[in-house]
Nucleic acid binder design. Sequence first.
DNA 1: TGTATTATCGACACCGTGTCGTTAATATAA
DNA 2: TTATATTAACGACACGGTGTCGATAATACA
Lengths: 203, 203
Amino acid sequence: MSKKMDPRVIRTRQLLRDALVALIDEQGYEKITVQDITQRATLNRATFYLHYRDKLDLLYQSSEEALHELVSSIHPPSEEKKDFDLLPNYEQPHETFMHLFEQIALNSKLYKVYLTEKNIPYFSDGLKDIIINFVSSGIQVMEPDDQKLTVPREMAVRFYAAAFLEVIVWWLENDMPYTPKFMATQLMRITIKGPYIDNPFER
Amino acid sequence: MSKKMDPRVIRTRQLLRDALVALIDEQGYEKITVQDITQRATLNRATFYLHYRDKLDLLYQSSEEALHELVSSIHPPSEEKKDFDLLPNYEQPHETFMHLFEQIALNSKLYKVYLTEKNIPYFSDGLKDIIINFVSSGIQVMEPDDQKLTVPREMAVRFYAAAFLEVIVWWLENDMPYTPKFMATQLMRITIKGPYIDNPFER
DNA sequence: TGTATTATCGACACCGTGTCGTTAATATAA
DNA sequence: TTATATTAACGACACGGTGTCGATAATACA
């Protein structure tokens, strides 16, 4: 899709996107003006409007691109492990979890800024939707019978999706102190076993 | 504190706060101007600046007030149940959870708008901090030994705090379809037992 | 090298902001 | 009830960011 594009266009848009990320990191999203962005990108302000409607449009398109890359890189599961993944060992890292953390690490600058800065529209919700779909299908495969869930299905999906997203944010905030494999293992364990090794309430 | 205030001031500020909530609900936070707010409140625009620095300051003060009310209403635990709450039955609703949902229900219009509308600064984070403190002390009481947690303590705290907040948002988005008691019971159960009644991984 | 595409530049009206100074309305206490 | 202080209303102002325009310069590619 970018093959037939004028290299100047590609360069200009990349300059604008990088400028946005850098400026959000420095002064937060809300205070940024189109003037700031074009100045940082060493472009004329009118040039901005040749490519994006406004600041929000630039953010949307950058977000869409990053999230689309993420989904594409995760979607194809390795075929030979399919059956294994349907019933993963909870002490073994889930393959999709690992892909998720690895892909985020590859683009960590953008993810850290877009997920941890305050009041960035769209990106967090977009990623949450992706995780919701993942969690939803995961629970559906593990337990199709609503009666065998501890809480209403939709509540459980939202519960774990938000929890997973928060752990990703925590990981980025702390500059990725653990490997993707470790993180995937941790998420699997806390989801299945809960917070305590010896459940204090029973057994 | 509001005893010695001119009743006109109280009236004016309440008009502005109500106008903000209504306008966020109608057109979202970002598009709102100070002009819009004062027009809706039937006040002169210059009057706004006698009370608040800008739109964000109005939101902050409204948020602070609501969150302070929430903390105050939750903090005093009923004395006679103290020992019981330290080791709650997981099929019994946790008293603090119930207070949380009940207090939110009392001010549900503001909570729904401030928590479910996109890009409302401060409020979600403020409530998340409150829940983090609550979760953190809860886990600390249940299990002071890091070795007996399934994952790093800070990760577990963030995991459950975000999950609880998401369930609150889900509850508000769906116009509170369950009672506070039911919600508190569900949260307790999914936290301790995980998503599945019969753990498919062991036993 | 020629042609089409894109970027640059300066200028414009528009809108929301924050702050004046002046005048009007209102609460509270004498 | 009336006097006084506090607050609101009102109109006006300069400022800054926006979005768009037309004309000109630079660049990619055939």
